[in-house]
């Protein structure tokens, strides 16, 4: 019964807020902060489009986006109350809860895992077993969880090499296998002159390890005190994503402007690839109705794996973790 009420509340908010636009000018905007996982690349285009096209304002919010990047973790910012909302991976969210920071998942934006391993075919790696004994560059947590289980699944021993911000270890043949995000490093590899047909790819999502990634989180207290504010932020972010997908050129203009402002080395075709592939993992079935949905089975898969690896002590309650509990 509660679920139904919450759903009605959410739906009515979605339609109700735009209706309030006109008198909104009279209403003072609520200041909130949001921190994405990383620099303002197309991975977060939806939020920046919502910000720069005034969607957040239409929803009564004065949003400040705190740019992520090396040395600035959205998990820490959320935990330390430096950000009201944050983009976190589902594993981060679950781990935070387990470690005692009460956070709730307001929306599961990325539903298909984009994390992958990439190898050159001419290095003889064509199937998972071929990775055995090779040097594999891996990012730090939470990026290590899926590879670790993957290697267990296929009974593979690898020589792990710490991977940081580039794929040059792989490009210089220092490692045989590299970690990559489909929307980012994989394209960097392609645009360093290696053709897709020269590469073997292992998507964890295809190996029973679909760990949903970016989601919108807030602290439980924020949700309990200002549910309307949280729902407004989520609804406006959804609208931002939809606009970004509908008007990719606009989204790319905004993205490129923000990246240039931060002197990030990148180019437009890379961001275009990123936006196109974000769409594929945000709406894997191309169904706008599924935007932001967290499926119980996905949650249980991720939480179960974390518990199995001893990274969490117990699996959080799904209905409490996911707010409003309408994601199923």
């Amino acid at each position: 019964m509660f679920k139904k009420t919450a759903l009605i509340l959410l739906v009515s908010l979605l339609f109700w807020f735009p209706g309030r636009q006109n008198p909104a000018a009279a209403q003072p905007l609520t200041k909130v902060t949001f921190m994405p996982l990383w620099v303002p690349q197309a991975q977060f285009a939806g939020y920046y489009v919502a910000l720069e096209t005034g969607i957040y304002k239409k929803y009564g919010l004065d949003v400040k986006i705190i740019s992520g990047g090396p040395g600035r973790s959205s998990t820490t910012y959320l935990k330390n109350r430096k950000a009201d909302f944050a983009s976190l991976w589902l594993v981060n969210g679950i781990t935070l809860c387990d470690q005692g920071t009460a956070v709730v998942n307001l929306a599961q934006i990325v539903q298909r895992s984009a994390l992958m391993l990439v190898a050159r075919k001419n290095s003889g790696i064509l199937k998972p077993e071929d990775i055995n004994g090779r040097k594999v560059s891996l990012w730090g947590p939470p990026f290590t969880i899926q590879p670790e289980i993957f290697f267990q699944q296929y009974n593979i021993k690898v020589i792990p090499i710490h991977q940081s911000y580039s794929v040059n270890l792989f490009l210089r043949h220092a490692v045989s296998v590299t970690s990559a995000m489909w929307y980012n490093e994989y394209h960097t590899i392609l645009n360093a002159g290696i053709n897709p047909d020269e590469l073997t790819t292992f998507f964890f999502a295809d190996h029973n390890l679909n760990f949903p990634e970016d989601g919108i989180y807030t602290r439980r207290e924020t949700w309990e005190e200002h549910p309307d504010r949280c729902l407004a932020f989520v609804a406006a972010s959804f609208a931002g994503w939809k606009k970004a997908f509908a008007e990719p050129d606009l989204a790319l203009d905004i993205t490129m402007r923000n990246l240039r402002k931060e002197h990030i080395i990148t180019n437009r075709v890379h961001q275009k690839w990123m936006l196109e592939h974000m769409r594929k993992i945000i709406l894997p079935h191309n169904d706008p109705e599924e935007l932001g949905r967290l499926k119980r089975e996905d949650f249980l898969r991720v939480a179960g794996a974390l518990k199995e690896l001893g990274l969490i002590k117990k699996i959080p309650d799904f209905t409490s973790f996911r707010q409003p509990p309408a994601g199923e």
């Binding site: 210089r172 392609l190 360093a192 002159g193 990148t266």
Partner: peptide
């Protein structure tokens, strides 16, 4: 460079940002 990244080019926006492959793609 070995990654195809432009180190020098008269059009300076290309330098460091673009590779010859990203230009080909664009």
């Amino acid at each position: 460079t070995r990654n195809g990244t432009f180190v020098t080019y008269p059009k300076t926006e290309l330098i460091m940002n673009e590779t010859i492959f990203s230009i080909a793609e664009a």
